[in-house]
């Protein structure tokens, strides 16, 4: 994906959340952001996903700069997908209509073409039987998998996932992680914020450790998890990895 972030700064109400953060990846498929809560992972992901404008700094994907105005960002958001921790499905629409809405209204597919597009993924991920249920009738794992599909069926250039399993019990989290793993094998590019270190180790091409609003360490999954030179990062992994 060749992500290049340069001197990215973000402030909310005077508090600096990202402080001249810079990061440059290779042409990879999966970047995983880890680190302590409040360190700036989600803030960074929201900027990458085109949901927030930074105060300063630049972001480029595969050589293309992210737009700096809301109109440009809106066009950019059509080309990527975002998955939130709390699913954020539309509660008044069935699971199926949640998937059809972006296809029909944003990407201007006909209803038939859109229905055709979502049929196979719904079946592959075991969700076809639940397609006509409202989100309130789905389990947490089902909701999150529908939310991932909603971001995926528009065939985004990159998927941004913000702690997609944090609200789920271990069994449901496993369902969702399996799905992400399968998507990766099929070639989906994604940036994932997670606390699931085992999964990060397995799925990540590169891992960036975000803390205090900056990148404290960055490297391949193997480098980061086994022998990171940063003492603070090593301590973090030692505390949470078995």
């Amino acid at each position: 994906m060749n992500l290049v972030v340069t001197d990215l700064t973000q402030r909310f109400a005077g508090t600096t959340v990202l402080d001249r953060l810079s990061l440059s990846t290779g042409d990879i498929r999966a970047l995983v952001l880890v680190g302590p809560s409040g360190g700036g992972k989600t803030t960074l992901l929201r900027i990458l996903a085109g949901l927030d404008l930074p105060v300063a700094g630049r972001v480029a994907f595969a050589g293309r700069e992210l737009p700096r105005d809301e109109a440009g960002l809106q066009a950019y958001r059509k080309t990527v997908g975002t998955v939130f921790q709390a699913y954020n499905l539309f509660p008044h629409l069935s699971a199926l209509d949640n998937l059809l809405l972006p296809l029909v209204q944003v990407h201007k597919l006909s209803l038939e073409a859109a229905s055709e597009r979502v049929r196979e993924p719904l079946e592959r991920f075991g969700l076809a039987a639940h397609a006509h249920k409202r989100p309130a009738e789905l389990s947490g794992g089902q909701k999150q998998r529908i939310a991932i599909l909603r971001a995926l069926v528009v065939q985004p250039a990159c998927l941004f996932l913000d702690e997609p399993t944090s609200a789920l019990d271990p069994e449901m989290a496993a369902e969702v992680l399996d799905m992400i793993q399968e998507l990766k094998l099929q070639g989906t590019r994604f940036v994932l914020v997670t606390h699931e270190m085992q999964f990060a180790r397995r799925a990540a091409d590169e891992v960036a450790f975000i803390g205090d609003g900056t990148v404290l360490a960055h490297g391949s999954a193997a480098e980061m998890f086994t022998n990171c030179p940063q003492p603070r990062v090593r301590a973090f992994f030692q505390r949470i990895l078995p």
Partner: peptide, 28 residues
């Protein structure tokens, strides 16, 4: 506000977000 976020994330315009996401829920 997470509903507005989700609407923006899937690429809806502010007007579409009002029409397809916010108003149908608010009317209820």
């Amino acid at each position: 506000t997470t509903q507005r976020d989700a609407a923006r994330a899937i690429g809806l315009t502010p007007w579409q977000s009002l029409r397809f996401v916010i108003l149908p829920q608010a009317i209820r």
